[in-house]
Design a protein around this nucleic acid. Structure first.
Lengths: 341, 341
DNA sequence: CTGTTAGCGCCTTCAA
DNA sequence: TTGAAGGCGCTAACAG
């Protein structure tokens, strides 16, 4: 007879009774503790199996104080940056025995506060706050009862721990790569200058140019994180400065627009003009013609690191580090800067 | 003196002591029950506020049997389809007082089983299983102790409840739109025929064509869900059948490739050729030149619906529905099929 | 080795 | 209107 109705989950008590032992003994047996006779343990395990016993982590958490649970508080799930970070964190935790509460605040402070309360009431062991840009964001506050790590968007409170990609170095590396490819007449098309990301990448690029005894051709153009802007800016650029031999773009979307216009105008990439993107959004980078060289922020690694910090804080052995940490990026080279052999 | 170290969360007992009432009274006062004197209630609330008391949902769940928690079991977080579904579900739940456990099985059955155990041990009130394609997937099994809803990828067990977009109707609507735009020499470039999505969309398209007394120009070409394939197929198509006046593509990526090649070959879109995509991935659709008409699967709505089914099951009032439900799609019209005025 | 007992934090009867 | 007591499922001392 197959029971199709959802059944009540078996409890440790049920197991104990079936195995004809006390509740405590059943607990010990199932938790693999030494002070249980082997035969007894077998009986208990058999009973547990027969009953499809699933230990109640909720009850367990009540006693231990640990729930084996962390909160992931994002400000915009849709954002392209959330996902890899979230994956990295989920990955690092999933390896162990921790589950992740996902909360999307939709960029709304009130909703965020609401979710924070909910997470605390569920007694999460830690919280990761994920932003969708690298501008500092308001801190959740000090002395919360659990460790908090800010990922991508740093907290505005230096007492908090924040992990964010190193956009300045990213800009540097981009220019260094272009220079290494023999380019010297380089232009820049960036994203919205209201974003720290746009400014930091530009800053790094300018530092690297100066170090190489160069400077940008024309004024760096910052406006919008869009393909459309990439197209418009490239058209202007090639019109005013036909001599440029490389464009460093502030995002892959912008770069994609640049590629399209360069092609329309009959310029060969990378022979005439090298084009670099930023973010290494493979979906765009690998679908481009030619494929796009881009700077990767290692977001999955960043998510993993954030999870690791939570672990560390839980172990409590180490002093919880503070401040904003800038994590390394890496340049992924493809056909838009180096011709295929 | 500011305490910077994480502090122990206050318990109901602390509140009761501070308010000089019994634990039971404090509980009643905080839960807004009637049988508490107004002055007493005020004292309790004040004490709770002073202590920043956050009720322990874990302990509460122990007694009530409900944890106010559901599991979201995805097979591939990266997948483009997860996110809107996940958002819809998170949205629907967030409106109430339910939090979501996110688990990414990485497409691995073993890991999925592992996560399932974890979710059950945490006594989630329900589970949503999200797939990244519309092919039937193995059921988690019958008579689990909680309600389960399959989203996007249906379960292979008809006794389960599955919500999946109606790709056949989507294909129909696409063709109907093209026909309404006055096109009659229509070709199809689809994705990987190993996917039900590719076959279903084609099937719907053929039905609609037949209904209009038409048939595809050339043989429908199915191969890969990529821009590259869109480019290659379009080049072949325009070479063999220069007379075609519309291309229905199985995805926005394919359509994007088609647009690019049409432009390269000097064809005007939409004047000479109308191009339709599928999925309404705004990132691609709105960045195209011209912007791309596409079929939207209403995934966020689908996620919301899945959440709603969990709610219904929890209320327990209604009989849990079963079987595969095909949810409606909608065509989003943009410049690639209808010229801007 | 095994079982008894006391909580973990909260809610819910049931008396007082 | 209040408070004492029991229990949710489990673990961690202690005794036996």
């Amino acid at each position: 007879m197959i029971d199709e109705s959802p059944k009540r989950a078996a409890t440790l008590n049920d197991v104990a009774e079936r195995a004809r032992v006390s509740l405590a003994t059943a607990s010990k047996a199932l938790n693999g503790r030494a002070d249980v006779a082997e035969r007894t343990r077998e009986r208990v395990l058999a009973a547990a199996a027969a009953l499809e016993f699933t230990p109640n982590a909720v009850a367990r958490g009540l006693t231990s104080g640990r729930t084996g649970t962390v909160g992931l508080l994002t400000s915009d799930l849709e954002g392209r940056f959330m996902i890899p970070i979230l994956m990295g964190a989920e990955d690092a935790f999933g390896a162990g025995k921790i589950d992740v509460f996902l909360c999307d605040a939709r960029g709304d402070a009130v909703r965020e506060q609401h979710h924070l309360r909910a997470l605390l009431s569920r007694r999460v062991d830690g919280i990761i706050v994920v932003g969708d840009n690298t501008d500092p964001r308001p801190s959740l506050g000090r002395n919360l009862p659990v460790p908090v790590v800010y990922a991508y968007a740093p907290s505005d409170d230096p007492k908090d721990l924040s992990l964010t990609p190193d956009n300045v170095t990213g800009g540097q590396e981009a220019i260094e790569h272009l220079v290494a490819c023999g380019r010297s007449r380089i232009a820049h098309i960036g994203g919205d200058p209201a974003y720290a990301a746009a400014r930091d990448r530009l800053k790094g690029a300018q530092q690297a140019l100066a170090a190489a005894g160069l400077s940008f051709v024309g004024t760096p153009m910052l406006s919008e994180w869009s393909e459309r802007w990439g197209r418009a800016a490239t058209a202007m650029l090639l019109d005013r400065h036909p001599e440029i031999d490389a464009i460093f773009c502030g995002s892959d979307q912008i770069a994609r627009g640049a590629l399209d216009v360069a092609r329309d105008l009959g310029r060969d990439v990378p022979a005439d003009i090298a084009v670099m993107g930023y973010d290494n959004w493979t979906l765009l980078a690998e679908a481009s013609r030619p494929e796009l060289t881009s700077v990767d922020a290692n977001l999955q690694e960043l998510g993993r690191a954030a999870a690791q910090r939570i672990f560390d804080a839980l172990d409590g052995t180490q002093q919880q580090p503070r401040g904003v940490h800038h994590l390394p990026v890496r340049t992924v080279i493809r056909g838009s800067t180096v011709p295929r052999r």
